[in-house]
């Protein structure tokens, strides 16, 4: 039986992405393979550059990588269709599309064809926090001129909502929020936002994350490494990745519920965006996606597949969910 030791590049300094993403996958793979497959996980920047993990894996300076596909949007906007954006479906649908609706197969084919690496989902976020904010933001008027820090494709789309997006280095976000140079920032899910402690310097948590209703992350394997494996070992890797993704999905969801409680205890006000804003944001996202579809063949294929899936699931709420009024029943302790 062959044994392997691989080096994994990541973009993370620590936190949930590292602990229950990259490292959890490494541990699980070692367990499932009876210790035959060992993965050493490196912090962002130790191998290659944190935002260029795909390059590091393609060129073989890392055997594996853990990244967010959206970082590659400068090269191919299809990356955003897999990584999630304002036009994407919710996390539950995304999980079903990926594992049952043909998403993973498309993902693998796209990565191989366009980037020459093997890619598959590893870790996912539920809906992010829309904003950690010093100002109350609820309506479209509130968004007008709001100095918000963001990155990636959302920069352009948030401008259509009326905001003034700002780009800054990551380390400077906290002090800039603190001194009011920026009004608000988006970051990750409520749970992940507790790590940089934005709640210490903001007064409002604005939900839900219309800019990022879900964010699947990605495991990458160098093509030569992949080709050298037998079918069974490949399946082991795929199984470990799928299991880690599903576990992460639940962990992120549950811990985020706890984080929302923490924000309340810290005295922050939790604000739900007006439906008007939520609808507008998704419209902007879909409009952007339709434009990409016309210019980019791969984007079109992925987007088309997601549209088909969503049509199939259009009425899911009616048979999978009771009406919202039922949720609070029986929870009043008084």
């Amino acid at each position: 039986q062959d044994t392997y030791e691989w080096r994994m590049a990541t973009g993370w300094g620590g936190g949930p992405l590292m602990d229950i993403g990259a490292q959890a996958f490494a541990d699980r793979l070692e367990l499932l393979s009876d210790g035959r497959m060992k993965v050493e996980v490196f912090q962002g920047g130790a191998i290659g550059e944190p935002l260029k993990v795909t390059d590091s894996v393609r060129r073989g300076i890392a055997d594996m990588g853990h990244t967010w596909p959206g970082y590659d949007w400068g090269r191919d906007t299809t990356a955003v269709a897999f990584g999630g954006f304002a036009g994407t479906m919710d996390d539950e649908r995304m999980m079903h599309w990926l594992y049952e609706g043909g998403g993973v197969e498309l993902w693998k084919e796209w990565r191989q064809e366009e980037f020459g690496v093997v890619g598959m989902p590893l870790f996912t976020r539920t809906a992010e926090t829309f904003l950690n904010s010093r100002k109350k933001v609820q309506s479209l008027e509130d968004l007008e001129g709001l100095k918000l820090r963001t990155a990636g494709a959302w920069i352009d789309m948030s401008k259509e909502l009326g905001a003034s997006p700002v780009t800054t280095a990551g380390d400077e976000i906290y002090p800039m929020l603190e001194r009011g140079v920026i009004d608000a920032t988006e970051w990750g899910t409520p749970w992940e936002d507790t790590y940089p402690k934005f709640y210490e310097v903001t007064d409002y948590i604005i939900v839900p994350g219309v800019h990022q209703p879900v964010a699947p992350f990605e495991l990458q394997v160098n093509q030569e490494v992949w080709d050298s494996l037998n079918e069974r070992d490949r399946q082991l890797i795929e199984t470990a990745a799928e299991l880690t993704t599903l576990k992460a999905w639940m962990k992120v969801g549950h811990e985020s519920a706890a984080a929302m409680k923490l924000f309340e205890e810290e005295g922050l006000e939790i604000v739900e965006l007006d439906p008007e804003v939520q609808v507008k944001a998704r419209e902007i996202g879909i409009e952007w996606a339709n434009k990409q579809s016309q210019e980019n063949e791969w984007f079109d294929r992925v987007w088309e597949s997601q549209r088909e899936f969503e049509k199939l699931w259009a009425d899911a709420e009616s048979y999978r969910r009771l009406v919202p009024e039922t949720r609070a029943l029986g929870l009043d302790t008084e």
Partner: peptide, 9 residues
């Protein structure tokens, strides 16, 4: 390829 770093991109 574009920089992907800001709205200017």
């Amino acid at each position: 390829e574009t920089s992907g770093q800001s709205a200017w991109n």
